[in-house]
Amino acid sequence: MATDLKDLAHPVDAAAVLRLLPDRPRLLAVGEPTHRADTLLDLRNELFRQLAEEHGYRTIALETDCLAGLLVDAYVTTGAGTLDDVVERGFGHGWNDLPANRELVRWMRQFNENRPQEDRLRFAGFDGPLEITAAESPRQPLTALHAFLAAHVDATLLPCTAQTLDDLLGADARWTEPAAMRDPARSFGRSPQARELRLLADELTELLDEQAPHLAAVAPPEDRDRAHLYARTAVGLLRYHHWMADASPGRLARLVGVRDRMMADNLHALAARGPVFTYAHNSHLQRERTTMTMGGASLHWWSAGALVSARLGEEYAFVATALGTIEHQGVAAPPPDTLEGLLHVLPEPRTVFDPRALAAALAETSPALRVSPWFGYAPYDPAHLASVDGLVYVRDVHGS
């Protein structure tokens, strides 16, 4: 078996990944099974450099705050701000301390120096302004959307004034109350003000769509794209806060489902402007329904990858990553009867496989699903080989 698998293994680079696919996809997604791993993030950076330099990819989209990511994009495209500041403020989930993220931003800015605007690399976050314990106030995207429309359309068409929005939004602390994640009664998401804001967000988004011909004549494409980002984010955040305030058994499943829907909408919009390389957790990019235990409940929802795949078809490609050890988190060598264990005996530190050929080679073996001793790592399910376009295996992972 080891000899057969060795014959199927190829060194990991962008060309090897793209050779697995019938055509260059509009959205090339590479997943990771754990976060904050230097080894995996360095590989991510290497793949994007190759995709940019050799294969025409111009956008990288990461699992981080879509609004904060605008700061990073401005820096890499125009030099606005400083490297220290945009890394500090431009990454969500506390990932501003990761050396690989800083190096990615530095390299993108260097790549863009002296390039024409249409050929510059772009950075995007595709997650909502959300964390595990709380969600941001909808103030920033909602007021920015209103300001864009107020600057370009007849004021009589607007459903409200900026002051009305400000009064309804109130203090941001009412939206970011950390206790609301565990106690729905502490959430502001179903208050009369929140309900009114949901209606207004819908009306502003509708007006943005209705005025598309006029806006195309008076506003640059970049400004219009950003207005649509604000609209998606405002609607998504208000929907997320609505479910934060819900006390039904379906609450957590709806929250994670709303988050991935926001991710999917952002990825779909990014893919419209050219080939995109996106990188996130496997669970957000896979085509299967995602399952996770949270708060003692088993949750099931459709991931961003599943939603985008349904829209883009073969223009969406997903390459999953499996790994062997994470010694600093107590994840030792995988059991030999698991998929990771069968790949762990191969000599190369990182390899990529055609999943169809790998599944055929393992047909009589039926690898077991590995059980992780650490909550922060999700082993790869061998039953998913039929629905991925490639599988990267990394023997040993070191964290930040």
Score class of each variant (00 low, 15 high):
residue 44 R to S: 03
residue 363 A to Y: 03
residue 113 E to K: 13
residue 247 A to V: 11
residue 320 A to W: 04
residue 95 W to M: 15
residue 332 A to R: 12
residue 205 T to N: 10
residue 155 A to D: 10
residue 242 H to S: 10
residue 318 F to R: 04
residue 228 H to N: 09
residue 243 W to Q: 09
residue 48 F to A: 01
residue 290 T to Q: 09
residue 119 D to P: 07
residue 80 A to R: 12
residue 195 R to M: 11
residue 4 D to R: 14
residue 11 P to I: 03
residue 209 D to K: 10
residue 325 T to P: 05
residue 229 L to Y: 03
residue 199 L to Y: 11
residue 86 V to M: 06
residue 325 T to H: 03
residue 105 V to N: 02
residue 199 L to T: 15
residue 69 G to P: 00
residue 32 E to M: 05
residue 238 L to F: 01
residue 123 F to W: 09
residue 370 R to N: 08
residue 34 T to F: 08
residue 118 E to Q: 13
residue 17 V to H: 06
residue 92 G to V: 07
residue 102 R to Q: 09
residue 135 A to D: 04
residue 23 D to P: 05
residue 298 S to M: 13
residue 395 R to Q: 12
residue 5 L to C: 06
residue 116 P to I: 09
residue 63 E to L: 05
residue 215 L to E: 00
residue 40 L to T: 00
residue 15 A to L: 12
residue 174 R to I: 01
residue 234 A to T: 04
residue 236 G to I: 02
residue 231 A to E: 02
residue 306 A to V: 01
residue 210 E to A: 15
residue 12 V to G: 00
residue 177 E to Y: 00
residue 385 L to W: 04
residue 347 P to E: 11
residue 230 Y to I: 08
residue 19 R to T: 14
residue 169 L to R: 01
residue 199 L to Q: 15
residue 146 H to W: 14
residue 69 G to D: 02
residue 79 G to D: 05
residue 327 E to D: 14
residue 315 E to G: 09
residue 389 D to E: 10
residue 219 A to Q: 07
residue 369 L to V: 15
residue 221 P to A: 13
residue 289 R to D: 10
residue 380 Y to R: 00
residue 283 S to K: 06
residue 257 G to D: 14
residue 34 T to N: 08
residue 163 Q to D: 14
residue 132 I to T: 15
residue 373 P to E: 08
residue 50 Q to Y: 06
residue 66 C to P: 03
residue 158 L to G: 04
residue 271 A to I: 10
residue 392 V to F: 09
residue 223 D to W: 12
residue 244 M to E: 02
residue 286 Q to A: 13
residue 380 Y to F: 15
residue 107 W to C: 06
residue 273 R to N: 15
residue 111 F to W: 13
residue 171 A to D: 12
residue 31 G to V: 07
residue 331 V to Y: 00
residue 361 A to F: 02
residue 72 V to P: 00
residue 149 L to S: 07
residue 344 H to K: 09
residue 35 H to L: 10
residue 161 T to G: 15
residue 148 F to H: 07
residue 8 L to S: 09
residue 343 L to G: 05
residue 270 L to E: 03
residue 46 E to P: 03
residue 23 D to N: 14
residue 178 P to G: 08
residue 305 G to R: 00
residue 55 H to R: 02
residue 222 E to L: 11
residue 64 T to I: 00
residue 84 D to R: 10
residue 3 T to A: 15
residue 48 F to T: 00
residue 38 D to M: 12
residue 339 L to F: 07
residue 125 G to N: 04
residue 131 E to T: 15
residue 56 G to K: 08
residue 169 L to N: 05
residue 322 A to L: 06
residue 40 L to Y: 03
residue 131 E to A: 14
residue 278 T to M: 06
residue 89 R to E: 13
residue 139 R to E: 08
residue 250 G to F: 10
residue 313 G to Y: 05
residue 395 R to D: 05
residue 164 T to M: 06
residue 290 T to D: 01
residue 278 T to E: 06
residue 116 P to Q: 10
residue 283 S to F: 10
residue 141 P to R: 06
residue 329 Q to A: 14
residue 32 E to A: 08
residue 252 L to V: 12
residue 308 V to G: 04
residue 219 A to Y: 04
residue 346 L to R: 07
residue 382 P to F: 00
residue 176 T to I: 12
residue 97 D to S: 15
residue 172 D to S: 14
residue 168 L to G: 05
residue 173 A to I: 08
residue 283 S to E: 10
residue 177 E to D: 14
residue 88 E to M: 13
residue 184 P to S: 09
residue 398 H to F: 12
residue 220 P to E: 13
